[in-house]
């Protein structure tokens, strides 16, 4: 009984998070003021972090919050403020029907193709659902998921990990070089 209630509560919470994510993402797309769109994107990122928790990826949820909500959104806000002198400057001019129709067409085709692909998965969905968490259960029996993830990241994926740090350094230097004013 308690177990059933717990499961029902989790399902309800899941759909609330999904609804929040999709609504915020829709607002990101349709909002005319780019500043409002950026705020909505922060909410969408929060929702995705919640989805990661439902997928038992707690570490990823934390990273999502720190990097996206704490980092990228702030960067986006900076860019918006720097590139608009007035509050009206952040309002996007009305989009043409051609742009809206073209966007809707491309997005609709992509969504339809995605749904078709999902239905043609190699492993049937019911079977996949039956062995949810199978891999985690056997490897993480003694250690929590974060410890196992750390071992994988700094073991099997050590080279990509180090390459990523070099890439971030390159991006940082590149970004400074791009915006720097010539002082000559």
């Amino acid at each position: 009984m308690v177990r059933a209630m717990h499961s029902m509560l989790a399902t309800l919470l899941f759909w609330i998070v999904v609804l929040m994510t999709v609504t915020a993402a829709t607002f990101v797309v349709v909002a005319r003021n780019i500043l409002h769109a950026a705020f909505a994107l922060a909410v969408a990122f929060l929702g995705v972090a919640g989805i990661y928790i439902f997928l038992h990826a707690d570490f990823l949820a934390a990273v999502q919050l720190i990097v996206y909500v704490g980092g990228i959104i702030v960067l986006v806000m900076f860019a918006i403020m720097f590139s608009a002198h007035t509050q009206e400057g952040t309002v996007e001019p009305r989009r043409t029907w051609l742009a809206l129709g073209g966007g809707a067409l491309v997005a609709g085709v992509v969504l339809a193709a995605t749904i078709m692909l999902i239905n043609r998965l190699q492993v049937p969905l019911a079977e996949a659902n039956a062995h949810a968490d199978a891999a985690y259960r056997t490897t993480a029996s003694a250690a929590p998921g974060e410890i196992a993830l750390g071992h994988v990241l700094l073991g099997e994926y050590l080279l990509p990990f180090e390459v990523a740090s070099i890439l971030i350094l390159a991006a940082l230097v590149g970004a400074v070089a791009i915006v720097r004013k010539e002082t000559r």
């Binding site: 989790a10 399902t11 309800l12 899941f14 759909w15 999904v18 994510t21 999709v22 993402a25 829709t26 990101v28 797309v29 780019i34 950026a38 969408a44 995705v48 989805i51 439902f54 997928l55 986006v76 860019a79 918006i80 590139s83 996007e92 001019p93 989009r95 742009a99 809206l100 073209g102 966007g103 809707a104 491309v106 997005a107 609709g108 992509v110 969504l111 995605t114 749904i115 999902i118 969905l125 996949a128 659902n129 949810a132």
Partner: peptide
């Protein structure tokens, strides 16, 4: 709900389609 792969894949597809729509139709670079 949370124990069904189908829901996550559909959510991913919807977010992807919304992102494509924004990329095609938006005028503002940000």
């Amino acid at each position: 709900g949370p124990n069904n792969l189908f829901n996550y894949l559909i959510l991913g597809g919807v977010l992807f389609a919304l992102g494509i729509f924004a990329m095609v139709s938006r005028k503002n670079a940000v």
